[in-house]
Simulated scan of single mutants.
Amino acid sequence: MKMLIVYTYPNHKSLNYAFFQNVMKGSSENPYITEVKVLDLYEEGFNPLLVFNEEKRRRDMHTDPNIEKYRKQITWADKIVFIYPIWWGRPPAMLLGYIDQLFASNFAYKDKKGYFPEGLLKGKSVVCVSTMKGPTHYPFLWLNNAHKILMKRALFNFVGIKKVKFFEFGNMESPKGNQMKKLERIYKYFKKIDQ
Protein backbone atom coordinates (compact mmCIF):
# COMPACT_ATOMS: atom_id res chain seq x y z
CA MET A 1 0.00 0.00 0.00
CA LYS A 2 1.31 3.42 -1.02
CA MET A 3 0.33 6.25 1.30
CA LEU A 4 0.27 10.02 0.83
CA ILE A 5 0.15 12.19 3.97
CA VAL A 6 -1.13 15.74 3.52
CA TYR A 7 -0.15 17.69 6.64
CA THR A 8 -1.79 21.08 7.16
CA TYR A 9 -0.59 22.99 10.20
CA PRO A 10 1.89 25.89 10.30
CA ASN A 11 3.77 24.81 13.45
CA HIS A 12 6.04 21.79 13.80
CA LYS A 13 6.13 22.17 17.59
CA SER A 14 2.47 21.34 17.95
CA LEU A 15 0.10 18.55 18.82
CA ASN A 16 -0.87 18.25 15.16
CA TYR A 17 2.78 17.57 14.35
CA ALA A 18 2.88 14.95 17.11
CA PHE A 19 -0.06 13.23 15.40
CA PHE A 20 1.85 13.41 12.12
CA GLN A 21 4.91 11.83 13.79
CA ASN A 22 2.78 9.01 15.19
CA VAL A 23 1.23 8.36 11.78
CA MET A 24 4.77 8.10 10.41
CA LYS A 25 5.97 5.90 13.26
CA GLY A 26 3.06 3.47 12.99
CA SER A 27 3.33 3.35 9.20
CA SER A 28 7.06 2.59 9.35
CA GLU A 29 6.27 -0.50 11.45
CA ASN A 30 3.46 -1.70 9.19
CA PRO A 31 4.48 -4.35 6.62
CA TYR A 32 1.44 -3.55 4.44
CA ILE A 33 2.56 0.05 3.89
CA THR A 34 5.30 -0.14 1.28
CA GLU A 35 5.95 3.55 0.65
CA VAL A 36 5.01 6.89 2.21
CA LYS A 37 5.13 10.37 0.68
CA VAL A 38 4.56 13.54 2.70
CA LEU A 39 3.13 16.83 1.53
CA ASP A 40 3.45 19.55 4.20
CA LEU A 41 1.33 22.32 2.65
CA TYR A 42 2.77 25.15 4.76
CA GLU A 43 6.38 24.03 4.44
CA GLU A 44 5.85 23.51 0.72
CA GLY A 45 4.57 27.07 0.38
CA PHE A 46 1.48 25.77 -1.41
CA ASN A 47 -0.60 28.64 -2.83
CA PRO A 48 -4.26 27.99 -1.92
CA LEU A 49 -5.61 30.90 -3.98
CA LEU A 50 -7.73 30.12 -7.01
CA VAL A 51 -7.02 32.38 -9.98
CA PHE A 52 -9.26 32.42 -13.02
CA ASN A 53 -8.94 34.84 -15.93
CA GLU A 54 -8.73 34.86 -19.73
CA GLU A 55 -5.62 32.62 -19.71
CA LYS A 56 -6.49 30.38 -16.76
CA ARG A 57 -9.96 28.85 -16.83
CA ARG A 58 -11.63 26.63 -14.24
CA ARG A 59 -12.42 23.92 -16.79
CA ASP A 60 -8.67 23.55 -17.49
CA MET A 61 -7.58 22.98 -13.87
CA HIS A 62 -7.01 19.27 -14.52
CA THR A 63 -4.13 20.18 -16.84
CA ASP A 64 -2.65 23.11 -14.86
CA PRO A 65 1.14 22.52 -15.02
CA ASN A 66 1.67 24.37 -11.70
CA ILE A 67 -0.06 21.58 -9.77
CA GLU A 68 0.92 18.58 -11.90
CA LYS A 69 3.22 17.15 -9.22
CA TYR A 70 0.34 17.18 -6.69
CA ARG A 71 -1.97 15.38 -9.14
CA LYS A 72 0.73 12.75 -9.59
CA GLN A 73 0.92 12.27 -5.82
CA ILE A 74 -2.83 11.64 -5.61
CA THR A 75 -2.77 9.29 -8.60
CA TRP A 76 0.15 7.38 -7.07
CA ALA A 77 -1.42 6.89 -3.62
CA ASP A 78 -3.63 4.02 -2.53
CA LYS A 79 -4.42 5.79 0.74
CA ILE A 80 -4.45 9.53 1.46
CA VAL A 81 -4.10 10.70 5.06
CA PHE A 82 -5.10 14.25 5.93
CA ILE A 83 -3.85 15.74 9.23
CA TYR A 84 -5.32 19.13 10.14
CA PRO A 85 -7.09 21.17 12.83
CA ILE A 86 -10.79 21.95 12.70
CA TRP A 87 -11.15 25.74 12.71
CA TRP A 88 -14.66 27.25 12.68
CA GLY A 89 -16.16 23.81 12.12
CA ARG A 90 -14.15 23.02 9.00
CA PRO A 91 -10.59 22.35 7.76
CA PRO A 92 -8.17 25.28 7.39
CA ALA A 93 -8.34 27.50 4.29
CA MET A 94 -4.93 26.15 3.22
CA LEU A 95 -6.32 22.61 2.94
CA LEU A 96 -9.55 23.78 1.33
CA GLY A 97 -7.48 25.65 -1.28
CA TYR A 98 -5.58 22.42 -2.00
CA ILE A 99 -8.88 20.56 -2.37
CA ASP A 100 -10.37 23.27 -4.62
CA GLN A 101 -7.45 22.99 -7.03
CA LEU A 102 -6.64 19.29 -6.96
CA PHE A 103 -10.07 17.65 -6.86
CA ALA A 104 -10.98 19.15 -10.22
CA SER A 105 -13.25 18.04 -13.04
CA ASN A 106 -11.67 15.55 -15.45
CA PHE A 107 -9.10 14.57 -12.82
CA ALA A 108 -11.09 13.66 -9.71
CA TYR A 109 -14.52 13.35 -11.32
CA LYS A 110 -16.19 13.46 -14.71
CA ASP A 111 -19.57 15.00 -15.41
CA LYS A 112 -22.16 12.72 -16.98
CA LYS A 113 -25.90 12.66 -17.47
CA GLY A 114 -27.91 12.68 -14.27
CA TYR A 115 -27.39 14.25 -10.88
CA PHE A 116 -24.06 12.74 -9.92
CA PRO A 117 -20.73 12.60 -11.74
CA GLU A 118 -18.47 9.62 -12.24
CA GLY A 119 -15.82 9.54 -9.52
CA LEU A 120 -12.38 9.03 -11.04
CA LEU A 121 -10.54 8.25 -7.78
CA LYS A 122 -12.26 4.93 -7.12
CA GLY A 123 -10.28 2.32 -5.21
CA LYS A 124 -8.48 4.82 -2.99
CA SER A 125 -9.18 5.29 0.70
CA VAL A 126 -8.84 8.25 3.04
CA VAL A 127 -8.10 8.81 6.73
CA CYS A 128 -8.78 12.24 8.29
CA VAL A 129 -6.99 12.98 11.57
CA SER A 130 -8.28 16.26 12.97
CA THR A 131 -7.96 18.16 16.23
CA MET A 132 -10.07 20.86 17.82
CA LYS A 133 -10.20 22.98 20.94
CA GLY A 134 -13.89 22.25 21.59
CA PRO A 135 -15.44 19.01 22.87
CA THR A 136 -15.19 15.91 20.70
CA HIS A 137 -18.93 15.80 19.97
CA TYR A 138 -19.21 19.53 19.22
CA PRO A 139 -19.31 19.10 15.39
CA PHE A 140 -21.98 16.39 15.70
CA LEU A 141 -24.23 17.97 18.33
CA TRP A 142 -23.88 21.66 17.48
CA LEU A 143 -23.01 21.73 13.77
CA ASN A 144 -25.11 18.78 12.52
CA ASN A 145 -21.98 16.80 11.67
CA ALA A 146 -20.98 19.44 9.11
CA HIS A 147 -17.27 18.51 9.06
CA LYS A 148 -17.83 14.85 8.21
CA ILE A 149 -20.60 15.64 5.73
CA LEU A 150 -18.35 18.17 3.98
CA MET A 151 -15.38 15.82 3.77
CA LYS A 152 -17.09 12.48 3.16
CA ARG A 153 -20.25 13.22 1.18
CA ALA A 154 -19.50 16.51 -0.56
CA LEU A 155 -15.89 15.65 -1.41
CA PHE A 156 -14.64 12.08 -1.14
CA ASN A 157 -17.80 10.18 -2.13
CA PHE A 158 -18.29 12.68 -4.97
CA VAL A 159 -14.92 11.72 -6.48
CA GLY A 160 -15.42 7.97 -5.97
CA ILE A 161 -13.64 7.44 -2.63
CA LYS A 162 -16.01 5.38 -0.50
CA LYS A 163 -13.72 4.22 2.30
CA VAL A 164 -13.23 7.19 4.65
CA LYS A 165 -12.12 6.94 8.30
CA PHE A 166 -12.32 9.89 10.72
CA PHE A 167 -10.47 10.62 13.93
CA GLU A 168 -11.92 13.83 15.41
CA PHE A 169 -10.03 14.61 18.60
CA GLY A 170 -11.60 17.24 20.85
CA ASN A 171 -10.50 19.08 24.00
CA MET A 172 -6.97 19.23 22.63
CA GLU A 173 -6.06 22.41 24.53
CA SER A 174 -7.31 21.03 27.84
CA PRO A 175 -5.02 19.41 30.46
CA LYS A 176 -7.71 16.70 30.60
CA GLY A 177 -7.68 16.11 26.85
CA ASN A 178 -5.98 12.67 27.05
CA GLN A 179 -3.53 13.74 24.36
CA MET A 180 -1.07 10.90 24.98
CA LYS A 181 -3.81 8.29 24.82
CA LYS A 182 -5.05 9.72 21.51
CA LEU A 183 -1.54 9.84 20.07
CA GLU A 184 -1.09 6.20 21.01
CA ARG A 185 -4.39 5.34 19.33
CA ILE A 186 -3.19 6.86 16.06
CA TYR A 187 0.16 5.07 16.28
CA LYS A 188 -1.55 1.70 16.82
CA TYR A 189 -4.07 2.28 14.03
CA PHE A 190 -1.38 2.98 11.42
CA LYS A 191 0.79 0.14 12.68
CA LYS A 192 -2.01 -2.38 11.99
CA ILE A 193 -3.98 -0.96 9.07
CA ASP A 194 -3.89 -3.30 6.06
CA GLN A 195 -5.90 -1.48 3.37
Rank of each mutant, 00 (worst) to 15 (best):
K2I: 07
N47M: 04
M24I: 12
V6D: 13
Q21A: 08
D60Y: 06
F46M: 04
M151E: 08
R185N: 12
V38P: 02
S125M: 06
L143D: 02
N171D: 14
R58W: 11
E184H: 10
G160S: 08
M3H: 00
K69F: 09
K13W: 01
G134T: 13
Y9K: 06
I186T: 07
K37R: 15
G119T: 10
A146R: 12
F167L: 04
K112I: 11
N157I: 03
T75A: 11
T131P: 06
K110C: 04
N16K: 01
Y138H: 14
L143V: 03
G160K: 10
L50Q: 10
Q73C: 10
L121P: 10
Y98G: 04
K122S: 13
R58P: 00
F20T: 06
K113H: 03
F190T: 06
D60E: 14
D78M: 01
M3F: 00
I5M: 05
N30F: 02
K69P: 03
D194H: 14
A93I: 05
D100E: 15
P48G: 08
L155K: 00
Q101A: 07
D194V: 00
N30P: 09
F166V: 09
D64A: 02
F166L: 11
K176M: 05
K79W: 01
N106R: 15
D111H: 09
K133Y: 14
M1S: 09
I83N: 08
L141K: 09
P91M: 15
K124F: 05
H12E: 05
K72P: 00
